[in-house]
Design a protein around this nucleic acid. Sequence first.
DNA 1: TACTCGTGGGT
DNA 2: TACCCAAGAGT
Length: 353
Amino acid sequence: MPDAAPAILSEFSRRVIAWQKTNGRHDLPWQQTADAYRIWLSEIMLQQTQVQTVIPYYGRFLARFPTLEVLAAAPLGAVLELWSGLGYYARARNLHRCAQTLVVERAGKFSANPQENAGLPGIGRSTAAAIGVFAFAGRAAILDGNVKRVLARCFAIGGTASPAQDLRALWALAEALLPERDVASYSQGMMDLGATVCTVRKPACDACPLRTICIACRDDRQAELPRRQIRAALPQRSSRVVLLTDGRRVLLERRPPIGIWGGLLSFPELSGEAPDAFVLRHGCRLLGSQQLPAIDHTFSHFRLRIEILRCDVEVLAHGVSEDVLEWLPVADVAAAALPAPIKRLLLATPLAA
DNA sequence: TACTCGTGGGT
DNA sequence: TACCCAAGAGT
């Protein structure tokens, strides 16, 4: 039936748009603007991160960096401070680089053409499309986790082909289903459907505008679509670190710019060195030490047990520290560029002797 | 292509 | 409890 496809495609977007207008989300902070800077920021923060997690970070970030120019002029450390706890810190580094690139090379403006924004640091195909749709009322296909799930179920994509083939099929579908008009409502509707109705577990098919179209719903295959990626058991790693304090400040180390927690401050690692030697090497005299309960932290691809030796010290000499080391006043811990578990521990540990 | 890169909530 | 997985992109 060669004529059936176009009819189904337009019916699909028509239902999504109608559903979005009455049942979708309209009050999210980044939906109150067409400012490309704000749209972009929200899209970066929302990568692999749930809406409710992003909302407070988004508000604090905009209060500190209200414009692209302010962001571009800020030091990376200040950006990481506002990103502390949100995770995937390469997003913050790329965000900062992207802002500087735009200011220097593109007059501080995003393009209305998604293809010209894709390839900027941190902006891939889907994020570029989202900026084009929500900031410039353009027409481009988004393919995030929500859209993938809706499409995979509705059209039974996955399970037979390779992941790469699945992805190509999903992109092709996303492009083919894109309506001529109301692209913003459609795109928002697809994400809202995936987030609130077509959920990973126990989808609310009774409330879905696509239930009479959806193959997964018809065949009761919601649980097997989209195909879940097989994940190996997470390897276990460990590290020994020092919480070095003089009662008012804590000694922290700036981590390398790439890798886990890249660019953030964290406890100096005690790689095989004896605690006394470590303390002395940093110009301090050891007053007392205590092994704190280990922190068990789970990353996306490994588990880390952090053994923490608390060293209470007296500072003997100043200026002997390397430039990657920094004494952080206790009062500044909450606002510092620290990984979530490190900040949590410091906030819960009284440092005064 | 496969791996890297955080964190918190849900089940 | 242990596992799943989010408004993905970089390498």
